[in-house]
């Protein structure tokens, strides 16, 4: 497994744990009303699990498993690496918006969109018949 996939998948596992931990408090508050402050973190719960866990895990597996180019290489890793950096910066900015207000959500979403575009541009030519 290439180093970029190792980093990306491990980051996604950490987001899974972080998002699930917030979810415990939110769901417990629904049940017994013990943690009303947890709702302040609800956006982070969604962000960590949707983009940090599901989205990032898919990118890590895609980089590892999509068909490779001739010579067994995965192409220029800069674009894929940029996608990972942009995605994580975006997630953390949206998370920070829990405390800073809406403008950082806007910038966070912009970074996440740039990450998606960057990964799509990287992965597009690798989605091809094996050996082609």
């Amino acid at each position: 497994m290439p180093r970029l996939s190792i980093w990306t998948i491990r980051m996604s596992l950490l987001y899974l744990l972080a998002g699930a931990t917030i979810g415990v408090f939110v769901l417990a508050d629904k049940g017994i009303g013990a943690y009303p402050a947890s709702w302040h973190w609800f956006g982070a719960h969604q962000e960590f699990l949707l983009f940090g866990w599901l989205g990032q895990f898919a990118m890590g597996i895609g980089y590892w498993a999509f068909p490779r180019y001739r010579g067994n290489h995965r192409g220029n890793p800069t674009l894929a690496g940029a996608a990972v950096v942009l995605l994580n910066a975006g997630i953390l900015l949206v998370f920070a918006s829990t405390f800073w207000g809406w403008t950082s959500i806007l910038w966070g979403r912009a970074l996440e969109s740039a990450a998606a575009l960057s990964f799509a541009c990287y992965a597009w030519p690798r989605i091809k018949p094996t050996g082609a």
Partner: peptide, 16 residues
């Protein structure tokens, strides 16, 4: 009320 708490803990243990 306590069922969501048990559910939350079980799902968290699964993630861990």
């Amino acid at each position: 009320g306590w069922v969501p708490v048990v559910s939350a803990i079980l799902q968290w243990l699964a993630a861990l």
